Simulated assay, not measured.
Amino acid sequence: MTDRSTTEQNPTGQDHAALDHAALDRAAELISGAQAVLVCAGAGMGVDSGLPDFRGDHGFWRAYPPYERLGLRFAELADPVHFVDDPELAWGFYGHRLDLYRRTEPHAGFAVLRSWGARVFTSNVDGQFQRAGFDHVAEVHGSIHRLQCVEPCTDDVWPADDVLVQVDPETMRAVGPLPACRACGGLARPNILMFGDWSWVPGPSQRALDELTAWRRSVRDLVVLELGAGVAVPTVRRQAELASAASGALIRVNPREPEVRHGRGVSLRMGAAAALAALDRLTTPARRTG
Rank of each mutant, 00 (worst) to 15 (best):
N10S: 14
R55T: 11
N124Q: 06
E8G: 06
G109W: 01
H16T: 14
D57F: 02
R261Y: 06
A75K: 11
D20A: 15
P258D: 08
L187N: 04
W158C: 01
Q239K: 10
G290K: 02
A183R: 15
P106S: 07
E151D: 15
A138M: 04
G142P: 02
L164Q: 09
D57R: 08
H136L: 06
W91I: 06
V201M: 03
Y67D: 05
F60W: 13
R281I: 04
N124E: 09
D20R: 15
Q148F: 01
G203A: 03
L276A: 03
F195P: 12
W215A: 01
D126L: 09
A183M: 11
R103E: 13
D210Q: 13
R207V: 15
P234F: 13
A183T: 14
L227Q: 01
E226R: 06
E226A: 07
T235L: 10
A28S: 10
T284Q: 07
S5F: 09
R256A: 11
R69N: 13
E88A: 15
R146F: 06
V150W: 01
R182C: 10
N191D: 15
G265L: 03
A245L: 12
E226Q: 12
D53Q: 11
T104V: 08
G196Y: 11
E151K: 11
D48Y: 09
V157D: 00
D126M: 08
D25S: 13
L30W: 15
G248F: 09
R26G: 14
D221W: 04
N124L: 02
V260Y: 04
D280V: 03
R69P: 02
